[in-house]
Structure formats: structure tokens, C-alpha cells
């Protein structure tokens, strides 16, 4: 096989580049947990990712983030495991309704929970469906010879990927089916691992809180404690209308479309380079309305003056934003 990966298209914030993937397999991973394997319809290899990465699935009219459970080597299929949440907003039900051969839009992998390369030892703590990013961490740790252990707590009989996790981790796995047992085990591990150990936790909020609190009490520096928090992507934002004061033109800016892209779409040329809010090129003077600053370029004083906006990433707090264009 020649191994040429697709080039990721450049996009503006709020737009995440997407792959159109096909469901290649559906499996039962535990009660209420469906494991999906996703491939490129024409077999093209998929981009690699760091352990703990997630993808954003377009589930009908909503977008949900799910952790990838594989090792992350370029070319492998993507695997996700989704717990059905009957009281959720419908994303998990959508995924549970998918069958082999269905196609869906999947973002490029997003990394926000990678292992720290300088760590001497990695303690992975998973509660319930929080096992998904940890499975990825464990696989990659085995592949690259990193020192690790996994503490996995789940309700009796409801452990997703139990056998796979055991096969990957061997001796390095401990499993707990009661909450007190799990918390005691985590506290014991945190109490006596060598300096230079990092801990990673994913699971229900009380478990994350427990790990953070216990680590702090035991004097762990905060940089050694990592909790899964999904995507820090810029959100698509609220719709608004740009009023161009010189030409009198009105340009609607829908969610997920940048002000810059909307202006360009309306035939208004604005210089731009980075389209990421850092280079300073796309600055536009504001004549009315309050900008919602999301760039890295303007100083605090310029922000509060409110008379300029970096239109590649920033939006509007008000329904109308008047621009000197």
C-alpha cells in the first residue's frame, strides 16, 4: 500500500475540516454501549492522532465529540464507543441508530488530552464510559514503551471493552466494580507513585473532582494532573448582521461562518493572512455595536476601546455590527 494521507484543508475557526466516513462495523461493547468502526469509503488511510484525541460527529442537526479508542497510528480505522443516553440531546441515539454502510461527516481528530512526553510514569484513571480515551492511551503506551497503569472503575457487569482493556494492559490493569473500592484504589495509587508521574482521568464529574482534590492534598503539582475536557474549539457563535457604513450594504453572518468569510462572500475584499486571529492583517474599524473579541492580536486597551475587530475570528455581541467598509 502506498501510504499517502489526505492533506487537511485549511479552515477558519468555527469550521472544523471534515472527513466523510463510512460505518464499517458495529459491535456491542457493554450494556447500552455501541462500538463503531469508521473507514474511508474508498479505503484511503486516515490521519494519525495523539492518544486521548476525539472526533466531532455530525449527528443529524447536532455535533457531538467522541473519544477515539485506537492507538492513533496513521492509516488505521477510527473507532469510537458511544453510551446511549436516553435523557441526552439525541446525539447518542443517532449514533446507536447507525448501521454498517451508513455515511457520516466526521471531523479531523482534535487533540486536547495527550500524554506528557517527559512523564516517567502515566497513571490512567477511567470511570465508566470514560474508558474510551484511556484505551487509546493504553494502546499507544504499549506501542511506544511508555510506563503506565490503568485503574478502571465501572458498575458490576457494565464495563465497556473489559476484555480488550485486559488484553492491552495485562498486569497493569486493576478493575473495581464499587465506587468506594475504586476511590480507595485511586487514592492509594496517587499516594505512592514516583516523582515525575502524571495522572490522567476521564469519567463522571465526581471521579474527576476526587482525583483532582486527592492529588492536590498529596502535593501533586497541577501540571501533573490531567482531566479530559472536550475541545476548546471556538464555538460557531450567534448570527448577526454587519452594516457596512460606507456602502450601506448589509451582510448577514450565520453561525459557523466567520465575519471575514461572510464579507468575502458578499464581494467585500478584506486583507487577511492567518485567518486565525494572530497576524493582525484583517483588522476592520467598528463604527457601531459591540465586537465580541476572540483574537490573540488586539491589546486589552484596544479591546475595551471596541473600535476595531479582527474579522477572521471575532464576532458581535449585538445583532448589528457597524463596520467602516
Amino acid at each position: 500500500m502506498t501510504a499517502v494521507l489526505p492533506a487537511r484543508p485549511a479552515t477558519t475557526p468555527g469550521e472544523v475540516p471534515e472527513l466523510l466516513l463510512e460505518v464499517a462495523a458495529v459491535a456491542h461493547a457493554a450494556d447500552g454501549v455501541r462500538a463503531l468502526t469508521l473507514r474511508h469509503p474508498d479505503g484511503a488511510p486516515l490521519p494519525g492522532y495523539a492518544p486521548g484525541s476525539h472526533v466531532v460527529l455530525t449527528c443529524g442537526d447536532r455535533r457531538n465529540a467522541y473519544s477515539l479508542t485506537g492507538e492513533g497510528a496513521p492509516g488505521e480505522a477510527y473507532r469510537i464507543s458511544v453510551l446511549l443516553r436516553p435523557d441526552g440531546r439525541g446525539g447518542s441515539a443517532f449514533v446507536h441508530g447507525l448501521a454498517v454502510g451508513d455515511r457520516l461527516a466526521v471531523s479531523w481528530p482534535r487533540s486536547a488530552f495527550a500524554p506528557v512526553a517527559t512523564a516517567r510514569h502515566h497513571v490512567l484513571v477511567a470511570g465508566g464510559i470514560g474508558i474510551t480515551p484511556m484505551l487509546s492511551h493504553a494502546r499507544a503506551a504499549v506501542r511506544w514503551g511508555r510506563s503506565f497503569e490503568l485503574v478502571y472503575g465501572h458498575r458490576p457487569g457494565a464495563g465497556a471493552h473489559r476484555e480488550e482493556v485486559a488484553a492491552v494492559c495485562g498486569e497493569r490493569l486493576t478493575v473495581h466494580e464499587s465506587t468506594p473500592g475504586m476511590l480507595d484504589a485511586v487514592a492509594a495509587v496517587l499516594a505512592d507513585r514516583p516523582i515525575g508521574t502524571h495522572v490522567y482521568v476521564c469519567g463522571p464529574a465526581p471521579l474527576i473532582d476526587f482525583v483532582e482534590r486527592t492529588a492536590e492534598e498529596l502535593g501533586w503539582p497541577a501540571e501533573r494532573v490531567h482531566a479530559e475536557r472536550f475541545s476548546a474549539d471556538l464555538d460557531p457563535g450567534e448570527p448577526f448582521t454587519a452594516h457596512l457604513s460606507r456602502s450601506g450594504v448589509r451582510v448577514p453572518v450565520p453561525p459557523g461562518v466567520s465575519l471575514l468569510a461572510a464579507l468575502e462572500g458578499a464581494g467585500v475584499a478584506v486583507p487577511s493572512t492567518c485567518r486565525q486571529g494572530v497576524c493582525g492583517e484583517c483588522r476592520v474599524a467598528v463604527v457601531s455595536g459591540r465586537p465580541l473579541h476572540r483574537d490573540l492580536y488586539l491589546s486589552e486597551a484596544e479591546r475595551s476601546a471596541g473600535d476595531a475587530v479582527m474579522c477572521c475570528v471575532s464576532r458581535s455581541l449585538d445583532d448589528h455590527l457597524g463596520l467602516d467598509l
Binding site: P17, W108, C274, V278, L296
Partner: peptide, 20 residues
């Protein structure tokens, strides 16, 4: 001028496959 600080923030936000 903040050029280096901004550059670092920008680089730390790069996602897999990003190329600038």
C-alpha cells in the same frame, strides 16, 4: 510587541494535520 507570545499561543492551538 507581543509577536513571540502570540506566535506561541497560535502554535499551541494547532490541531493534528494543521499546516501553516
Amino acid at each position: 510587541s507581543g509577536v513571540v507570545a502570540r506566535a506561541e499561543q497560535f502554535l499551541m492551538r494547532l490541531q493534528p494535520g494543521d499546516a501553516y
